[in-house]
Design a protein around this nucleic acid. Structure first.
Lengths: 210, 210
DNA sequence: TTGGATTATTTACATTGTTAATTAAATTTG
DNA sequence: CAAATTTAATTAACAATGTAAATAATCCAA
Protein backbone atom coordinates (compact mmCIF):
# COMPACT_ATOMS: atom_id res chain seq x y z
CA UNK A 1 0.00 0.00 0.00
CA UNK A 2 2.09 2.89 -1.27
CA UNK A 3 -0.60 5.34 -0.38
CA UNK A 4 -0.55 4.58 3.30
CA UNK A 5 3.18 4.87 3.25
CA UNK A 6 3.14 8.30 1.66
CA UNK A 7 0.56 9.47 4.18
CA UNK A 8 2.70 8.29 7.04
CA UNK A 9 5.62 10.12 5.54
CA UNK A 10 3.63 13.32 5.14
CA UNK A 11 2.36 13.07 8.68
CA UNK A 12 5.91 12.67 9.92
CA UNK A 13 7.04 15.54 7.74
CA UNK A 14 4.58 17.93 9.35
CA UNK A 15 5.42 16.64 12.81
CA UNK A 16 9.03 17.46 12.10
CA UNK A 17 8.10 20.89 10.83
CA UNK A 18 6.23 21.56 14.06
CA UNK A 19 9.21 20.49 16.12
CA UNK A 20 11.64 22.50 14.02
CA UNK A 21 9.48 25.58 14.39
CA UNK A 22 9.35 25.06 18.16
CA UNK A 23 13.12 24.76 18.33
CA UNK A 24 13.54 27.94 16.36
CA UNK A 25 11.17 29.71 18.72
CA UNK A 26 12.64 28.63 22.01
CA UNK A 27 16.28 28.70 21.09
CA UNK A 28 15.97 32.34 20.20
CA UNK A 29 13.73 33.60 22.94
CA UNK A 30 13.31 30.86 25.49
CA UNK A 31 10.36 28.77 26.36
CA UNK A 32 7.91 31.51 27.03
CA UNK A 33 8.11 32.21 23.33
CA UNK A 34 6.79 28.83 22.25
CA UNK A 35 3.06 29.14 21.69
CA UNK A 36 0.82 27.03 19.53
CA UNK A 37 -0.12 30.06 17.48
CA UNK A 38 3.47 31.04 16.77
CA UNK A 39 4.29 27.50 15.77
CA UNK A 40 1.29 27.52 13.47
CA UNK A 41 2.39 30.82 11.96
CA UNK A 42 5.84 29.48 11.23
CA UNK A 43 4.64 26.34 9.52
CA UNK A 44 1.82 28.26 7.83
CA UNK A 45 -1.05 26.23 9.18
CA UNK A 46 -3.91 27.21 11.39
CA UNK A 47 -3.31 26.82 15.14
CA UNK A 48 -5.68 23.93 15.58
CA UNK A 49 -3.90 21.88 12.96
CA UNK A 50 -1.08 21.43 15.43
CA UNK A 51 -3.45 19.39 17.56
CA UNK A 52 -3.84 16.87 14.77
CA UNK A 53 -0.19 15.96 15.24
CA UNK A 54 0.29 16.40 18.97
CA UNK A 55 -2.18 15.82 21.77
CA UNK A 56 -1.17 18.99 23.54
CA UNK A 57 1.71 21.34 24.16
CA UNK A 58 3.34 19.08 26.69
CA UNK A 59 3.58 16.33 24.12
CA UNK A 60 5.50 18.69 21.87
CA UNK A 61 7.84 19.38 24.76
CA UNK A 62 8.31 15.68 25.33
CA UNK A 63 9.25 15.17 21.68
CA UNK A 64 11.71 18.06 21.83
CA UNK A 65 13.15 16.56 24.97
CA UNK A 66 14.04 13.44 23.02
CA UNK A 67 15.65 15.48 20.28
CA UNK A 68 17.75 17.09 22.97
CA UNK A 69 19.10 13.73 24.02
CA UNK A 70 19.98 12.90 20.43
CA UNK A 71 21.93 16.13 20.26
CA UNK A 72 23.70 15.25 23.46
CA UNK A 73 24.61 11.83 22.18
CA UNK A 74 26.22 13.45 19.15
CA UNK A 75 28.14 15.67 21.54
CA UNK A 76 29.59 12.56 23.13
CA UNK A 77 31.01 11.09 19.94
CA UNK A 78 34.47 12.26 20.98
CA UNK A 79 34.48 9.84 23.92
CA UNK A 80 34.88 6.66 21.91
CA UNK A 81 38.56 7.19 21.30
CA UNK A 82 39.51 7.66 24.96
CA UNK A 83 40.76 4.47 26.52
CA UNK A 84 41.58 5.60 30.02
CA UNK A 85 38.21 5.44 31.78
CA UNK A 86 38.98 8.24 34.20
CA UNK A 87 40.00 10.54 31.39
CA UNK A 88 36.86 9.47 29.59
CA UNK A 89 34.76 10.25 32.64
CA UNK A 90 36.43 13.63 32.85
CA UNK A 91 35.78 14.38 29.20
CA UNK A 92 32.21 13.19 29.58
CA UNK A 93 31.78 15.74 32.33
CA UNK A 94 33.26 18.49 30.21
CA UNK A 95 30.97 17.55 27.34
CA UNK A 96 28.03 17.74 29.69
CA UNK A 97 29.00 21.20 30.86
CA UNK A 98 29.54 22.38 27.32
CA UNK A 99 26.30 20.93 26.05
CA UNK A 100 24.35 22.61 28.83
CA UNK A 101 25.98 25.99 28.36
CA UNK A 102 25.62 25.95 24.60
CA UNK A 103 22.04 24.63 24.59
CA UNK A 104 20.47 26.05 27.72
CA UNK A 105 16.94 25.70 26.42
CA UNK A 106 17.41 22.07 25.50
CA UNK A 107 19.08 21.51 28.82
CA UNK A 108 16.11 23.06 30.53
CA UNK A 109 13.80 20.68 28.74
CA UNK A 110 15.91 17.62 29.45
CA UNK A 111 16.86 18.14 33.07
CA UNK A 112 14.89 20.96 34.63
CA UNK A 113 11.35 21.34 33.30
CA UNK A 114 8.60 19.26 34.81
CA UNK A 115 6.39 19.06 31.71
CA UNK A 116 8.16 16.36 29.71
CA UNK A 117 8.28 14.05 32.73
CA UNK A 118 4.54 14.37 33.23
CA UNK A 119 3.93 13.16 29.69
CA UNK A 120 6.13 10.11 30.19
CA UNK A 121 4.30 9.39 33.40
CA UNK A 122 0.90 9.67 31.73
CA UNK A 123 1.98 7.48 28.87
CA UNK A 124 3.19 4.92 31.37
CA UNK A 125 6.63 4.91 29.83
CA UNK A 126 9.91 5.70 31.47
CA UNK A 127 12.51 8.34 30.95
CA UNK A 128 14.26 6.20 28.37
CA UNK A 129 16.40 8.81 26.67
CA UNK A 130 17.76 9.97 29.99
CA UNK A 131 18.27 6.51 31.36
CA UNK A 132 20.29 5.47 28.33
CA UNK A 133 22.63 8.42 28.77
CA UNK A 134 23.07 7.58 32.43
CA UNK A 135 23.88 3.97 31.69
CA UNK A 136 26.96 5.12 29.83
CA UNK A 137 27.99 7.16 32.84
CA UNK A 138 27.47 4.24 35.18
CA UNK A 139 29.46 1.89 32.97
CA UNK A 140 32.32 4.34 32.86
CA UNK A 141 32.37 4.77 36.61
CA UNK A 142 32.28 1.00 37.06
CA UNK A 143 35.21 0.67 34.69
CA UNK A 144 37.13 3.28 36.67
CA UNK A 145 36.57 1.23 39.80
CA UNK A 146 37.45 -2.06 38.15
CA UNK A 147 40.72 -0.72 36.88
CA UNK A 148 41.54 0.99 40.15
CA UNK A 149 41.35 4.58 38.98
CA UNK A 150 38.89 5.47 41.69
CA UNK A 151 38.24 3.87 45.03
CA UNK A 152 35.98 0.85 44.74
CA UNK A 153 32.46 1.38 45.95
CA UNK A 154 28.90 1.53 44.69
CA UNK A 155 29.07 2.67 41.03
CA UNK A 156 25.45 3.73 41.21
CA UNK A 157 26.14 6.06 44.10
CA UNK A 158 29.23 7.58 42.55
CA UNK A 159 27.51 8.04 39.21
CA UNK A 160 24.67 9.87 40.87
CA UNK A 161 27.19 12.02 42.68
CA UNK A 162 29.11 12.93 39.55
CA UNK A 163 25.97 13.64 37.60
CA UNK A 164 24.52 15.76 40.39
CA UNK A 165 27.72 17.69 40.49
CA UNK A 166 27.80 18.65 36.83
CA UNK A 167 24.05 19.18 36.74
CA UNK A 168 24.39 21.51 39.69
CA UNK A 169 27.03 23.53 37.91
CA UNK A 170 25.11 23.83 34.67
CA UNK A 171 21.74 24.55 36.19
CA UNK A 172 23.06 27.17 38.58
CA UNK A 173 24.94 28.80 35.73
CA UNK A 174 22.09 28.96 33.25
CA UNK A 175 19.66 30.16 35.90
CA UNK A 176 22.08 32.90 36.81
CA UNK A 177 22.75 31.95 40.41
CA UNK A 178 26.50 31.98 39.98
CA UNK A 179 27.21 35.66 39.70
CA UNK A 180 28.66 35.92 43.18
CA UNK A 181 31.19 33.26 42.29
CA UNK A 182 31.92 34.22 38.71
CA UNK A 183 31.77 37.88 37.85
CA UNK A 184 31.92 37.70 34.07
CA UNK A 185 30.03 35.42 31.77
CA UNK A 186 33.15 34.51 29.83
CA UNK A 187 34.64 33.08 32.99
CA UNK A 188 31.71 30.77 33.71
CA UNK A 189 32.86 27.88 31.60
CA UNK A 190 36.50 27.99 32.73
CA UNK A 191 35.49 28.08 36.38
CA UNK A 192 33.06 25.23 35.90
CA UNK A 193 35.77 23.17 34.26
CA UNK A 194 38.13 23.95 37.09
CA UNK A 195 35.47 22.84 39.48
CA UNK A 196 35.14 19.58 37.62
CA UNK A 197 38.91 19.15 37.69
CA UNK A 198 38.77 19.53 41.43
CA UNK A 199 36.18 16.80 41.74
CA UNK A 200 38.01 14.38 39.48
CA UNK A 201 41.24 14.98 41.37
CA UNK A 202 39.49 14.36 44.64
CA UNK A 203 37.93 11.09 43.64
CA UNK A 204 41.02 9.80 41.88
CA UNK A 205 42.41 6.88 43.77
CA UNK A 206 45.95 7.76 44.73
CA UNK A 207 46.09 4.80 47.00
CA UNK A 208 45.48 6.67 50.18
CA UNK A 209 43.13 4.04 51.52
CA UNK A 210 43.63 0.28 51.39
CA UNK B 1 2.23 61.56 62.24
CA UNK B 2 0.50 58.54 63.67
CA UNK B 3 -1.78 58.44 60.69
CA UNK B 4 0.99 57.91 58.18
CA UNK B 5 2.32 55.22 60.39
CA UNK B 6 -0.95 53.35 60.48
CA UNK B 7 -1.28 53.59 56.72
CA UNK B 8 2.17 52.14 56.24
CA UNK B 9 1.23 49.37 58.55
CA UNK B 10 -1.97 48.66 56.68
CA UNK B 11 -0.14 48.64 53.39
CA UNK B 12 2.36 46.19 54.79
CA UNK B 13 -0.45 44.10 56.24
CA UNK B 14 -2.08 43.68 52.84
CA UNK B 15 1.25 42.97 51.19
CA UNK B 16 1.76 40.21 53.71
CA UNK B 17 -1.72 38.87 53.09
CA UNK B 18 -0.96 38.71 49.37
CA UNK B 19 2.26 36.83 49.99
CA UNK B 20 0.61 34.47 52.45
CA UNK B 21 -2.12 33.71 49.96
CA UNK B 22 0.48 33.03 47.28
CA UNK B 23 2.37 30.66 49.56
CA UNK B 24 -0.83 28.82 50.36
CA UNK B 25 -1.56 28.48 46.65
CA UNK B 26 1.81 27.26 45.46
CA UNK B 27 2.70 25.05 48.36
CA UNK B 28 -0.43 23.02 47.76
CA UNK B 29 -0.53 22.88 44.01
CA UNK B 30 2.70 24.26 42.66
CA UNK B 31 3.42 27.43 40.83
CA UNK B 32 0.97 27.00 38.04
CA UNK B 33 -1.68 27.47 40.66
CA UNK B 34 -0.61 30.97 41.62
CA UNK B 35 -2.71 33.43 39.66
CA UNK B 36 -3.54 37.01 40.45
CA UNK B 37 -7.22 36.18 40.50
CA UNK B 38 -6.83 33.32 42.95
CA UNK B 39 -4.73 35.46 45.21
CA UNK B 40 -7.39 38.14 45.03
CA UNK B 41 -10.07 35.61 45.87
CA UNK B 42 -8.19 34.41 48.92
CA UNK B 43 -7.61 37.88 50.34
CA UNK B 44 -11.10 38.97 49.28
CA UNK B 45 -10.08 41.84 47.10
CA UNK B 46 -10.57 42.47 43.43
CA UNK B 47 -7.79 41.20 41.17
CA UNK B 48 -6.52 44.62 40.20
CA UNK B 49 -6.02 45.60 43.81
CA UNK B 50 -3.05 43.29 43.89
CA UNK B 51 -1.35 45.63 41.44
CA UNK B 52 -1.50 48.44 43.98
CA UNK B 53 0.90 46.47 46.15
CA UNK B 54 3.08 44.74 43.59
CA UNK B 55 4.15 45.98 40.18
CA UNK B 56 3.51 42.61 38.60
CA UNK B 57 3.49 38.90 39.24
CA UNK B 58 7.24 38.60 39.03
CA UNK B 59 7.61 41.09 41.85
CA UNK B 60 5.45 38.85 44.00
CA UNK B 61 7.72 35.96 43.14
CA UNK B 62 10.76 38.00 44.08
CA UNK B 63 9.26 38.80 47.47
CA UNK B 64 8.41 35.13 48.05
CA UNK B 65 11.95 34.26 47.09
CA UNK B 66 13.22 36.37 49.97
CA UNK B 67 10.83 34.69 52.37
CA UNK B 68 12.27 31.40 51.23
CA UNK B 69 15.73 32.48 52.27
CA UNK B 70 14.44 33.50 55.68
CA UNK B 71 12.98 30.04 56.08
CA UNK B 72 16.27 28.52 55.06
CA UNK B 73 18.17 30.61 57.57
CA UNK B 74 15.89 29.32 60.30
CA UNK B 75 16.65 25.82 59.09
CA UNK B 76 20.33 26.49 59.71
CA UNK B 77 19.96 27.48 63.35
CA UNK B 78 21.25 24.05 64.36
CA UNK B 79 24.68 24.84 62.92
CA UNK B 80 25.74 27.32 65.58
CA UNK B 81 26.54 24.67 68.14
CA UNK B 82 28.86 22.66 65.89
CA UNK B 83 32.49 23.54 66.45
CA UNK B 84 34.21 21.20 64.04
CA UNK B 85 33.98 23.07 60.73
CA UNK B 86 33.91 19.94 58.61
CA UNK B 87 31.07 18.49 60.64
CA UNK B 88 29.37 21.86 60.34
CA UNK B 89 29.85 21.84 56.58
CA UNK B 90 28.41 18.36 56.46
CA UNK B 91 25.40 19.33 58.52
CA UNK B 92 24.93 22.44 56.40
CA UNK B 93 24.74 20.19 53.38
CA UNK B 94 22.21 17.93 55.04
CA UNK B 95 20.13 20.93 56.01
CA UNK B 96 20.22 22.10 52.42
CA UNK B 97 19.02 18.74 51.16
CA UNK B 98 16.28 18.60 53.74
CA UNK B 99 15.13 22.13 53.11
CA UNK B 100 14.90 21.50 49.40
CA UNK B 101 13.03 18.24 49.74
CA UNK B 102 10.58 19.61 52.30
CA UNK B 103 9.97 22.89 50.49
CA UNK B 104 10.29 22.07 46.82
CA UNK B 105 8.26 25.05 45.71
CA UNK B 106 10.32 27.48 47.73
CA UNK B 107 13.43 25.79 46.47
CA UNK B 108 12.22 26.21 42.93
CA UNK B 109 11.75 29.92 43.53
CA UNK B 110 15.12 30.38 45.19
CA UNK B 111 17.39 28.33 42.97
CA UNK B 112 15.64 27.28 39.80
CA UNK B 113 13.09 29.76 38.49
CA UNK B 114 14.27 32.59 36.30
CA UNK B 115 11.62 35.14 37.25
CA UNK B 116 12.91 36.37 40.59
CA UNK B 117 16.37 36.97 39.12
CA UNK B 118 14.92 39.10 36.36
CA UNK B 119 13.30 41.38 38.92
CA UNK B 120 16.57 41.85 40.79
CA UNK B 121 18.28 42.63 37.53
CA UNK B 122 15.66 45.17 36.55
CA UNK B 123 15.81 46.80 39.94
CA UNK B 124 19.57 47.00 39.61
CA UNK B 125 20.05 45.16 42.86
CA UNK B 126 21.87 41.94 43.46
CA UNK B 127 20.85 38.55 44.68
CA UNK B 128 21.44 39.58 48.27
CA UNK B 129 19.53 36.87 50.07
CA UNK B 130 21.35 34.19 48.15
CA UNK B 131 24.75 35.82 48.47
CA UNK B 132 24.40 36.05 52.23
CA UNK B 133 23.67 32.36 52.48
CA UNK B 134 26.66 31.55 50.31
CA UNK B 135 28.96 33.69 52.42
CA UNK B 136 28.33 31.38 55.34
CA UNK B 137 29.25 28.42 53.18
CA UNK B 138 32.42 30.09 51.99
CA UNK B 139 33.47 31.00 55.51
CA UNK B 140 32.94 27.44 56.64
CA UNK B 141 34.97 26.02 53.79
CA UNK B 142 37.74 28.52 54.51
CA UNK B 143 37.73 27.48 58.15
CA UNK B 144 37.99 23.84 57.11
CA UNK B 145 41.06 24.69 55.08
CA UNK B 146 42.61 26.84 57.79
CA UNK B 147 42.29 24.09 60.33
CA UNK B 148 43.51 21.44 57.96
CA UNK B 149 40.29 19.44 57.63
CA UNK B 150 40.34 19.70 53.88
CA UNK B 151 43.20 20.25 51.49
CA UNK B 152 44.09 23.92 51.20
CA UNK B 153 43.01 25.56 48.00
CA UNK B 154 40.66 28.20 46.69
CA UNK B 155 37.73 28.37 49.15
CA UNK B 156 35.61 30.02 46.48
CA UNK B 157 36.12 27.14 44.10
CA UNK B 158 35.45 24.47 46.70
CA UNK B 159 32.36 26.29 47.96
CA UNK B 160 30.98 26.46 44.46
CA UNK B 161 31.68 22.77 44.05
CA UNK B 162 29.96 21.78 47.26
CA UNK B 163 26.97 23.96 46.55
CA UNK B 164 26.66 22.68 43.00
CA UNK B 165 26.77 19.17 44.34
CA UNK B 166 23.89 19.54 46.78
CA UNK B 167 21.94 21.71 44.40
CA UNK B 168 22.33 19.05 41.77
CA UNK B 169 20.97 16.42 44.11
CA UNK B 170 17.98 18.44 45.21
CA UNK B 171 17.04 19.76 41.82
CA UNK B 172 17.29 16.40 40.11
CA UNK B 173 15.22 14.86 42.88
CA UNK B 174 12.41 17.39 42.90
CA UNK B 175 12.23 17.43 39.12
CA UNK B 176 11.95 13.67 39.14
CA UNK B 177 15.07 12.82 37.20
CA UNK B 178 16.36 10.41 39.80
CA UNK B 179 14.00 7.52 39.37
CA UNK B 180 16.56 5.32 37.62
CA UNK B 181 18.88 5.71 40.60
CA UNK B 182 16.34 5.63 43.39
CA UNK B 183 13.29 3.49 42.88
CA UNK B 184 11.15 4.60 45.80
CA UNK B 185 10.47 8.09 47.00
CA UNK B 186 11.18 7.19 50.59
CA UNK B 187 14.69 6.23 49.60
CA UNK B 188 15.48 9.56 47.96
CA UNK B 189 16.60 11.39 51.06
CA UNK B 190 18.73 8.53 52.43
CA UNK B 191 20.49 8.09 49.10
CA UNK B 192 21.10 11.81 48.79
CA UNK B 193 22.60 11.88 52.26
CA UNK B 194 24.80 8.93 51.41
CA UNK B 195 25.91 10.76 48.34
CA UNK B 196 26.81 13.77 50.45
CA UNK B 197 28.72 11.51 52.84
CA UNK B 198 30.69 10.25 49.91
CA UNK B 199 31.64 13.76 48.87
CA UNK B 200 32.64 14.85 52.35
CA UNK B 201 34.73 11.72 52.79
CA UNK B 202 36.42 12.36 49.49
CA UNK B 203 37.36 15.94 50.22
CA UNK B 204 38.42 15.25 53.78
CA UNK B 205 42.11 15.74 54.10
CA UNK B 206 43.58 12.49 55.32
CA UNK B 207 47.06 13.73 54.65
CA UNK B 208 47.49 11.93 51.34
CA UNK B 209 49.06 14.94 49.69
CA UNK B 210 51.69 17.20 51.23
C1' DT C 1 -18.54 69.75 54.80
C1' DT C 2 -16.08 69.94 50.78
C1' DG C 3 -12.34 68.89 47.69
C1' DG C 4 -8.20 66.59 46.72
C1' DA C 5 -5.62 62.35 47.51
C1' DT C 6 -5.67 57.57 48.20
C1' DT C 7 -7.55 53.00 47.57
C1' DA C 8 -10.56 49.93 45.36
C1' DT C 9 -13.52 48.13 41.77
C1' DT C 10 -15.51 47.54 37.29
C1' DT C 11 -14.53 47.14 32.39
C1' DA C 12 -11.88 46.01 29.04
C1' DC C 13 -8.24 43.91 26.10
C1' DA C 14 -4.81 40.94 24.30
C1' DT C 15 -2.75 36.39 24.67
C1' DT C 16 -2.94 31.87 25.61
C1' DG C 17 -4.35 26.54 25.37
C1' DT C 18 -7.84 23.93 23.71
C1' DT C 19 -12.60 22.09 21.97
C1' DA C 20 -16.53 21.88 18.78
C1' DA C 21 -18.58 22.74 14.50
C1' DT C 22 -17.78 23.20 9.78
C1' DT C 23 -15.69 23.04 5.45
C1' DA C 24 -12.31 21.30 2.01
C1' DA C 25 -9.66 17.61 0.19
C1' DA C 26 -8.46 13.06 -0.68
C1' DT C 27 -9.64 8.32 -1.06
C1' DT C 28 -12.51 4.46 -1.64
C1' DT C 29 -16.35 2.35 -3.63
C1' DG C 30 -20.13 1.47 -6.90
C1' DC D 1 -16.20 8.50 -13.71
C1' DA D 2 -19.54 9.93 -9.98
C1' DA D 3 -21.11 9.31 -5.30
C1' DA D 4 -20.06 8.21 -0.71
C1' DT D 5 -16.99 8.19 2.89
C1' DT D 6 -13.02 9.05 5.32
C1' DT D 7 -9.34 12.30 6.46
C1' DA D 8 -7.26 16.83 6.99
C1' DA D 9 -7.70 21.58 7.81
C1' DT D 10 -10.02 25.76 9.11
C1' DT D 11 -13.07 28.94 11.43
C1' DA D 12 -15.42 30.12 15.53
C1' DA D 13 -15.64 29.95 20.15
C1' DC D 14 -14.50 29.46 25.25
C1' DA D 15 -12.34 29.96 29.50
C1' DA D 16 -8.25 31.43 31.93
C1' DT D 17 -4.77 34.57 32.43
C1' DG D 18 -1.88 39.09 33.09
C1' DT D 19 -2.59 43.65 33.09
C1' DA D 20 -4.10 48.68 31.85
C1' DA D 21 -7.61 52.40 31.87
C1' DA D 22 -11.64 54.39 33.49
C1' DT D 23 -14.51 54.89 37.27
C1' DA D 24 -16.17 54.77 41.90
C1' DA D 25 -15.67 54.73 46.88
C1' DT D 26 -13.16 56.09 50.96
C1' DC D 27 -10.37 58.89 53.76
C1' DC D 28 -8.40 62.96 55.61
C1' DA D 29 -7.09 67.95 55.92
C1' DA D 30 -8.81 72.56 55.29
Amino acid sequence: MGIQERKEKQKLEIRTRILDASIKLFSNEGFGNVTIRKIADLIEYSPTTVYLYFKDKDEIFAALHDIGFQKMTEFNRNLASINNPLLRLHKMGENYLQFGMENPEFYNLMFIMGEPMKVFEEMGCDWNAGDAALSVLKATVAECMDKGYITKGDPQLVSLAVWSFVHGLVSLAIRERMEKFVSQKELLMPVMKESLNWLINNIENTGKER
